[in-house]
Design a protein around this nucleic acid. Structure first.
Length: 452
RNA sequence: GUGGUUGUAGCUCAGUUGGUUAGAGCGAUGGAUUGUGGUUCCAUAGGUCGCGGGUUCGAGCCCCGUCUCCCACCCCA
């Protein structure tokens, strides 16, 4: 007999954990609806041609690939097998993969359904994604993303509304967060000013790590990537910009005054900041010039959210992408979106114990089972209780009372309703409050109002 | 993909330089208590010491491999 196990980086969720996770999904979902987003779903697997090349070289490696059905090796000749070229071989034996995020499948969806979509299209999607990464803190191979995107609108109002959504969601969770903001156009402008446009990706990847590894290591990495010493020197004043939003902006304006794209980025950023200023947001909003984000399809605003009271990587991220649908044959459609990392939020809420009691409630009332006659007496009562919207159950076996009571106790049932010989005779019910231990016998007709 | 770390009962963990029959707490089950849980007392069940190989008279303990967990890097939610 084999010991059962589950794949590395995946998890089972107990009923209690599911109650917590559903609280998270329900909260996010209701905020999405509140802002006029509509839900869609896409398949767990996509054609590899859809996924490959969209996340950079690293992303391709982290894609889970699905072996073709049937005789997948049939069309591969001996030489190719012996060549041991796994990339080439993969293309022959696998043409599907598990989705890596929700944004690229969404872009694919938009292109395929372009004739049925009214633009601007505001969609949300809450589904698992898979990455063949090595698991560690806050990192799983299967995890849920909760995405909201707007496509077909260049307006910065979308960025502002997404920030409001982030703020509202974390306000509901009671979680203090910092929303970091930057703009890829500013990063492009910086690259332009220091004369290293072709190294934009290397620059963004390196400076993104600034807070973690410090200036020296960032510079070393840039050097290794082939940036000129002159460029690295020029970059320093920008990396070191500190102080208030206003001073950062005004300094930046002087530094990248000659970059058209950079100035455009600043202008966008200023619009977003000024529009959000009077919205009374609970979250801190911060301009972080070192925020870059890895995904290379971002072209405008970029966001990242960190929990203030917990050690955890980013719990939400997003940004604007100007041409994601272009690769699927639909050019000039701009989109902007955010993605809540439900599993990281789950971990953070767990460490901070931020779940409201209502989120963890189970059955409100459990009826004891004393035998056939008593069950027959209880069933119509239970039906009425349920019709009143109160969750109720009956213990299915006529077990000992002790067993039934401790079952109710472990399940954290709020009330136990006892109906035995005495109650049957008097058309009554004995209701026990499991928290206080108090109990009283009441007429059946009063039961529902007491439970409400 | 690279480096480090962990694995003993359902859970959390002890286990001496390698030495007889691997322990505890919690949980589970039964009883004290035939209509009363959460407190107390008693009893019982529960183990391929992750898996495979090796060293040894003898391995939970040492060695090798492998899987898993966790952590760091890469990258990311």
């Amino acid at each position: 007999m084999q010991k059962p196990s589950i794949p590395k980086g995946t998890r089972d969720f107990s009923p209690e954990e599911m109650a917590k996770r559903n609280y998270i999904f329900d909260t996010i979902r209701s905020v999405f609806y509140l802002y006029g987003f509509q839900q869609i779903e896409t398949p767990a697997m996509e054609n590899l041609s859809t996924l490959m090349g969209k996340y950079g070289e690293e992303g391709d490696k982290l894609l889970f690939k699905i072996l073709n059905s049937g005789d997948f090796i049939g069309g591969v000749d001996q030489d190719e097998l012996l060549a041991h070229n796994s990339v080439k071989l993969t293309n022959k034996i696998s043409e599907k993969g598990l989705r890596y995020d929700l944004t690229v499948p969404f872009a694919r969806y938009v292109v395929m359904h372009r004739n049925d979509i009214d633009f601007p299209f505001k969609r949300f999607q809450i589904q698992p994604v898979w990455r063949a990464d090595r698991p560690q803190k806050g990192r799983y191979r299967e995890f849920f993303q909760c995405d909201a995107d707007v496509v077909g609108s260049d307006s910065l109002l979308n960025e502002v509304e997404l920030i409001q959504i982030i703020d509202e969601v974390f306000k509901r969770f009671g979680l203090k967060v910092c929303i970091k903001l930057n703009n890829r156009k500013i990063l492009s402008g910086i690259a332009e000013i220091i004369g290293e446009t072709k190294h934009l990706t290397d620059i963004t990847v390196a400076i993104d790590k600034f807070d973690k590894i410090g200036a020296e290591n960032v510079n070393r990495e840039l050097e290794e990537k082939g940036l000129s010493t002159e460029a690295i020197v020029k970059l320093q004043p920008i990396l070191q910009l500190e102080g208030s939003y206003e001073s950062k902006i005004s300094n930046l304006k002087t530094i990248i005054a000659k970059s058209e794209i950079g100035l455009k980025g600043i202008e966008e950023l200023e619009t977003i900041f000024s529009l959000t200023k009077d919205l009374n947001l609970g979250a801190q909003i911060e301009l972080d010039l070192r925020l870059a984000r890895g995904l290379n399809y971002y072209t405008g605003a970029i966001f990242e959210v960190k929990a203030i009271d917990a050690e955890m990587g980013s719990i939400t991220g997003g940004g604007r992408y100007d041409n994601l649908t272009g690769v699927f044959g639909l050019p000039d459609v701009s989109g902007v979106g955010i993605s809540f990392g439900a599993d990281r939020i789950f971990d953070v809420l767990n460490t901070l114990h931020l779940y409201p009691a209502e989120a963890l409630r189970t059955t409100k009332v459990m009826f004891t089972n004393f035998g056939e006659k008593e069950c027959a007496y209880c069933l119509p009562i239970i039906k009425a209780v349920r019709e009143a919207g109160i969750s109720a159950e009956i213990f299915p076996e006529a077990s000992k009372m002790k067993k039934q009571m401790s079952y109710a106790n472990v399940r954290k049932v709020e009330y136990v309703a006892i109906a035995g010989e005495t109650e049957l005779a008097a058309n009554s019910i004995t209701l026990k409050n499991m928290t206080s231990g108090e109990q009283k016998t009441i007429p059946v007709c009063e039961l529902i109002s007491l439970l409400k």
